[in-house]
Design a protein around this nucleic acid. Sequence first.
DNA 1: AATGCGATTCTCT
DNA 2: GAGAATCGCATTT
Length: 206
Amino acid sequence: MSRLPRDFFERDTITVAKELLGKILVHEVSGRRLCGKIVETEAYCGITDKAAHSYGGKLTPRVKPMYGMAGTSYIYFIYGMYNCFNIVTQAEGIPEAVLIRALEPLTEFDFISQNRFKENYNKLKASKIKALSNGPGKLCIAFSLDRSLNNYDMCKYHSCFYIESPVKNNSPEIVSAKRIGIDYAEEFKDKPWRFYIKDNNFVSYK
DNA sequence: AATGCGATTCTCT
DNA sequence: GAGAATCGCATTT
């Protein structure tokens, strides 16, 4: 298994958002290998997209990673207590990205469960198992993603934080829907640029 | 199942 | 000083 190459990310953002579904996010930390299947994404289509942080070519210190190479992480702080994790798409200088909205945990269940709820996985009720990482803020807590991993090159050879293809290359059935939490985005708030795997239990909103 | 609200702090004006 | 690509809990239906 190997890291998805920069070519994968250096493409049209909506295409990348769809093709990321079913791929595996890997974060190697404190001797562990945290893996989660990507089950929900949102495309943020740069300078023309009123919902994107880079709308209109805005370039502040926070947004700067979006202008970096494809495969760069963009992790920002939101609502006073959460982080959101994106992967930058398109060539350097084109500020577009895909928000990872939900993951299905695949390894290190107790570690992930401790991160989220301070209790072991086998103590969790079904409702909490589902809530481990079914949202952009939740998955950052569960998978130990914070701003120390912002502006990180996920395609470099020795990265500890990257995306890989699953062993079995199944292409999931994809549902398109409106993006979440962007009421300010006027005519862009209803664009069907959220994508999720049909019938997956770890999707945030259906 | 749906709705409402408070928490909490970074970012930019 | 206002607002934010959210979450969890409480309340109502």
